[in-house]
């Protein structure tokens, strides 16, 4: 979330934010109350993984699992800076040590295994720590007979982990394959943005796939496609609604209704 503008009125200082959708100024606290959805145009602001968990699960029900699995640097990768320094710094400052939070909790009283990708950690990219945490969550859900819910927000593969990152797509697909045979219901929730190796593996393998309203979802990014084809893309290209009309997601849901829609599905389970 960017650009928090401080506006000083007569006696008080209030925080305002400009909507990325309709450009209106919004009162920040009201926006938070509205689950970070613009009350005027319905624009969905991006959530942190922690906010997502808060909005989805029953208050206080979340129990984090596999927190001890942390990003490593398999290639000793260096671009503008060493990757090792980058992950160490994020860990020190933000407390995150991978791009996913995994655990279990309840949704309107129903136990679920939940994985939420953290876009705020290197763009929610698919590194080996995420691969391992999510794999363990999948098998945890099988062992404990829990529905599996994964909320994606990811730019795709973690380039700094090279081929190891690519192989996480295979690893997670193998795990999901086992869940399909021995598990309950896997609900994949696609939020803005979900791209690349994340989309082309576990995110598109849900028994049920729900896209959050207006989310951008695809494999190749729009810029890459425009550069390759030299054509301007349609306005709704790669939106949640576009995926729905092309038959690749089961439903598009507004953030306010997400918990309720998931609850309905979970309650249908035998």
């Amino acid at each position: 979330m960017k650009k928090i503008v401080k506006v000083i009125t007569k006696n008080e200082s209030k925080e305002w934010i400009r909507c990325n959708g309709c450009k209106k100024l919004l009162y920040y606290e009201e926006l938070i109350e509205n689950k970070k959805v613009c009350p005027y145009c319905g624009y969905h602001f991006r959530l942190t993984a922690k906010e997502r968990i808060e909005y989805l699960l029953d208050n206080g029900s979340f129990k984090e699992l596999f927190r001890n699995i942390k990003s490593d640097d398999p290639l000793n990768f260096v671009d503008k800076e060493p990757y090792r320094a980058k992950i160490d710094e994020i860990e020190k400052n933000g407390g995150y040590s991978s791009s996913i939070i995994t655990g279990e909790g309840t949704i309107n009283g129903i136990n679920v295994a939940l994985g939420v990708l953290a876009f705020e950690y290197i763009g929610g990219s698919l590194g080996a720590a995420m691969g391992e945490k999510l794999t363990r969550l999948v098998y945890y859900a099988i062992e404990n007979n829990l529905p599996l819910i994964v909320v994606s927000a990811s730019g795709g593969a973690r380039m700094q982990e090279g081929i190891i990152s690519l192989m996480q797509m295979a690893k997670l697909s193998a795990a999901i394959n086992d869940y399909k045979k021995n598990g309950k219901l896997y609900i994949s929730i696609l939020t803005n943005p979900t791209y690349g190796g994340t989309t082309a593996s576990f995110a598109m393998l849900g028994d049920i796939i729900i896209a959050e309203s207006k989310a951008m979802i695809g494999f190749a990014g729009p810029r890459v496609i425009e550069q390759t084809t030299k054509k301007k893309l349609k306005e709704d290209f790669q939106t949640a609604e576009f995926l729905l009309s092309h038959g690749f997601v089961d439903m598009v849901v507004e953030r306010q209704n997400l918990k309720q829609e998931i609850t309905k599905l979970l309650e249908f389970l035998p």
Binding site: F219, T229, F248
Partner: peptide, 26 residues
């Protein structure tokens, strides 16, 4: 790499690859 075009996206390139990654284990 896979074809980065509008057509490939419309016809679900991500879904096609994901399905293969899973189904080849069977």
């Amino acid at each position: 790499g896979a074809n980065p075009t509008e057509g490939a996206e419309e016809r679900g390139i991500a879904s096609a690859i994901a399905t293969n990654l899973m189904e080849f284990f069977n």
